[in-house]
Design a protein around this nucleic acid. Sequence first.
DNA 1: ACTCTTCGTAAGTTATAGCTTACGGTAAGT
DNA 2: ACTTACCGTAAGCTATAACTTACGAAGAGT
Lengths: 105, 105
Amino acid sequence: MAYGNALEALADPTRRRIFERLRRGAQPVGRLATGLPVSRPAVSQHLKVLKEAGLVSEEREGTRRIYRIDPSGLAQLRTWLDQFWDAALDAFKAEVERSEGDKPE
Amino acid sequence: MAYGNALEALADPTRRRIFERLRRGAQPVGRLATGLPVSRPAVSQHLKVLKEAGLVSEEREGTRRIYRIDPSGLAQLRTWLDQFWDAALDAFKAEVERSEGDKPE
DNA sequence: ACTCTTCGTAAGTTATAGCTTACGGTAAGT
DNA sequence: ACTTACCGTAAGCTATAACTTACGAAGAGT
């Protein structure tokens, strides 16, 4: 149930902003922090959560830590979401067939 | 940014259990509450959050309220997720091309 | 060796999400 | 009309998530 951690991670608005920033490419912590309304340590804490959720990966480069989006967590979320998508469509299909049965043929 | 509300709604474990129960089909509140480790009013509160997030819809049937999965909120989540999917693939592609450039052809 | 940069972690504070019980409203059955 | 079933909302409590400042580690440059 790794999708649970991913959902909890992406629930926070600040964490979403960080994650959306990484869409433009890999970045070190300091650069991610500039422009955000929270302190740099806060960004570090958020990145830790995102990493544990499998949403970002870390690469050390000297004293810097470069963070980038990790597709693995994303993939799990997608497959989980698709289950509901299919279920909702099936329910809709069943609903249509039910009302079809009401029609006088 | 409706996906934000959807993510926050699905972040809670109890709310996920309710949502996953609805995958089997539409159900009234009382039936959803049985088997869950929380009280029935708690389930009502969770359903309210899910509804405001566009993830479930409500249908009144006498004194009962039937809840079912609403595909609209799901669709918004999917499109939002796909943006990161594409971005991550592009970044990966760029990374490969960069290391390809290092190779002596 | 010393300094500076970059970053993670610890400790402490505060807002709030999730839960409970209590209550009221509405529809259906007798 | 009275009772019963089903449900939403209000009020209050509690755990904790998100933030801050302070500190230390670790590498790069002089």
